[in-house]
Design a protein around this nucleic acid. Sequence first.
DNA 1: TCCTTATGTACAA
DNA 2: TGTACCTAAGGAC
Length: 269
Amino acid sequence: MPEGHTIHRLAQDYAAAFLGTEPQVTSPQGKFSDAAALLDHAELTHTEAHGKHLFLGFRESTWIHIHLGLFGKVNFGATPAPPPTDTVRLRLANNTSYVDLRGPTTCALITDTEKQAIHARLGPDPLRQDADPTTAYTRISRSRTTIAALLMDQKVIAGVGNVYRAEVLFRHGIDPYRLGRDITPTEWTALWTDLVALMREGVRNNRIDTVRPEHTPEAMGRPPRVDDHGGEVYVYRRANLPCHLCGGEIRTADLAARNLFWCQACQAD
DNA sequence: TCCTTATGTACAA
DNA sequence: TGTACCTAAGGAC
């Protein structure tokens, strides 16, 4: 489930299992073998996330840059580690834990300078202490692009993906096709504040829940969710189903090659 | 067994 | 805007 909350959770989980230890580093699949050999039994000294980018720091100087893309998955376990399957790009293993990375879009050895360049091209991340939401609003308020597209643009704001995009716009009654320049400062403050809260909860629970307590299935007297993405949501992947609030049909459309979901009645300008 | 789909991004034209 | 890339699960046959 790779949106920003997943990556921040992974940074915590990698740290909990491996920080301060000198794990065996291997690439059973082979695509990362050379780099793995360089880091084998080096101390893991840092883990960090910015948006959907994960950084594992070794020996205070060298980083593994990981981006899960759409398909990447990470699996932690206790030793003894089972024999790796042939899709494991990266495995760390110490005396107590192992972790396997499969299918990442990026898994590369980078320097501190290269890492700085990645931070520089990413927008503020609601899950980071150093995030400044006004830099995002500066871009949004000048843009003729839709707010739905802007929220997915990692240069504008880092870590929001298709689920948080759809859900936060619903929670604030904002039409996804509204242009960035028509989003008021008040609306942006509310969106950002809500993203901080939702994504923090996402890290804590390792899943995305966006439905307010008063709108849960129990509170509304409707059947529990049937979707399998893991959390309780208002509109994401609920095309043609009734809106939890107004009963209208949830709409879906293609926007920049991604599926957009929204309730036309609840999200009118 | 094949086909579709997915919470993402980069690059070519 | 289209396409390529990486993997695995679920559903249609």
